[in-house]
Simulated assay, not measured.
Amino acid sequence: MFYKTKRTDDMSLVSKPTDFTKQVREQMASKERGQQLIADLSSHIEDIGKEDYFDVLEVEELVLREQAYAVEVMKKKKDYPTDIPRFSPSSAGKSKAELYLKAIKAEKDEKLTYPFQNRWTRNSTAVHGAMQKTLLEAEVILQNPMFTVMRLPEKGGLPAWEKNIERWKVIEHNGQRFVIFGMCDGILEYKKDGTKVGFEYKTKSNSVAQIKQIKEPNPSHIAQTVAYAILFEVDEWLITYESVAKDKWTTNENARPDFKIFYNKVTEADKKRLLDKWADVAKHVEAGQLPDSPLGKFDYMFFPYKKVYAELTKNG
């Protein structure tokens, strides 16, 4: 056991247990829990992949109802407050500078997009929808599915994801008020213990080899799950990467893995760090001052406000 010492008035040393041992135990338990969830979701995805089936009627009907609901949501004007800064989970990992410029509605750089890039995005979006549909089909096809998609009784039993679960919250933190608004890829029920587990899904498009090369989740994807935890009050998240490209058809059982799953347990400290960041950006928006937020090489590559940023920082 680990101890810390405290000097008393008579200069003797009194041993007291520290929180370190407890933290180590909690980390070990979290690691084991994560490994189990990863293994079970991997098996779940592989099991449904082994099945040879066509349209599942109840899933087709559910998808149609979901699409109709999404259309109605898109028709309605958003009702979140517009007089305070607004942040989204998808931008949680962005720099303070980018969040600030987005919040003040700065003019974005002219963007040149090539046709193949739009097709790239189209294909990834289609695979994204296919995976969600597969999760619904697994509930019907598999005898003992390890996961099911949470339903929204107040919305006629629609799946807990995308437009169905889109929401906003007003946050008050460090003396600042701001809005967090967004939706997520899914909230699942883990059938072994009935707990809620978030599902975050990402695609890779270059080659199936990309999956093997992923050693840990992208930091921005981890930040995204922290934002989801704040918005949806679900702390366990499974970040799943799937390659749109697959191995050769004839590789059969020797095919390289085309997906990989990571576990992230969001802590209160994680939430505080993100809320601190958002509150600091909100403070700078209120003051009308660009945050001192140096951009890394990767940040700058996809930074959509290069022209405005250069103007604001040219004398700094």
Rank of each mutant, 00 (worst) to 15 (best):
K108T: 00
S90P: 07
D83I: 10
R119C: 12
H44R: 06
Y69C: 06
S91Y: 11
K108W: 02
A68F: 12
K111R: 12
T82W: 04
H44A: 00
R65P: 03
S91A: 14
I38D: 01
R33C: 05
Q36C: 08
P85T: 00
I45L: 02
F54E: 14
S88V: 15
S124N: 11
R65G: 08
A106Q: 03
W120K: 06
G49R: 08
R86P: 07
K75W: 01
E66T: 11
K111C: 14
Q117K: 06
E72C: 03
L99V: 05
E61I: 07
K50P: 11
S43F: 04
V56Q: 02
R65Y: 06
L62S: 09
Q36M: 07
E58D: 14
Y114M: 14
S91E: 10
R33A: 05
L37S: 03
E46S: 09
A68H: 14
E32S: 10
S90K: 05
S42W: 01
K102Y: 08
K105T: 06
M74K: 12
K102C: 08
K108E: 02
G34A: 01
L41C: 06
S90T: 07
D52M: 14
T113Y: 10
L37C: 01
I84K: 04
E72H: 04
I45T: 01
E66V: 09
S42L: 06
D55Y: 14
L99R: 00
